[in-house]
Amino acid sequence: MDIIVCAKNVPDVAEADLNISDKGTDIDKEDLVFGINDWDNYAIEEAVLLKEKYGGTVTAITVGNEDDEEVLRRCLAMGADRAIRIEADDISRFDSFVISKILSRVVKDLQFDLIFTGVLAEDDYYGMVGMMMAEELNINHANMITALEIEDGKARTTSELEGGLGEVSLIELPALLTIQTGINEPRYVSILGIRKAAKKELKTIELPDLGISDEELSPRTIIEEAFLPPETEGAEILAGDPDKISSDLIEILKKKGVME
């Protein structure tokens, strides 16, 4: 079973203080800490688990600059056999359409039974690359996979639907699956593991060498403005030590009739 995993290096924004960049169309990423997109972490783990079970190879791919290679090194440490980076110094100029074009172009020349992407990426939350790739490659696909089994060369997948429903499908390979978090428990990647994986193959492809037309490299989505949520009325930030905050909070809840 040969599996390709597309992974993205994303800034950790969950607890960070965000600012709008000078250009006004993105957040300022200068002081942010980067790491593998959480969904992609599950995708690579799932690929490695399948490889451990059925044999074959796992190839990790990313579009990005040299710093983004850290994601690939991590994938290699987790058990991928080789990695490919398509050189692009600033991927924020690309939208999901362009990224899916680039990835599809590279994947086309590779041997594969399955392609995994994360359902979406933590930075922009578009969740489009996987599906667009499947269309571009003209292969079967299924989204939000929370369970996966291989049966007689077919994939039995469970997709997560609204309201906790699951949808089970039997899909002919080759296929593309977008992996949902919780499908497995991603393993720990140690520093030693990353250093040992440095021996594995990591290939860089220059974008012009792919022969993608300028037309296809021009984004279909253009961000005109990025802004912080405007301050509105009705919010009150409680200050002081925990004792004071909690008593103030109880006071407010009582006043509003939430508490007796």
Partner: peptide
Amino acid sequence: EIEEGSRVPSLLIQSLETLYKY
């Protein structure tokens, strides 16, 4: 076990990753 990775308690994984990043 840390090098093998898959049997490490999940909260510990989270803490070590936080340590690595922050």
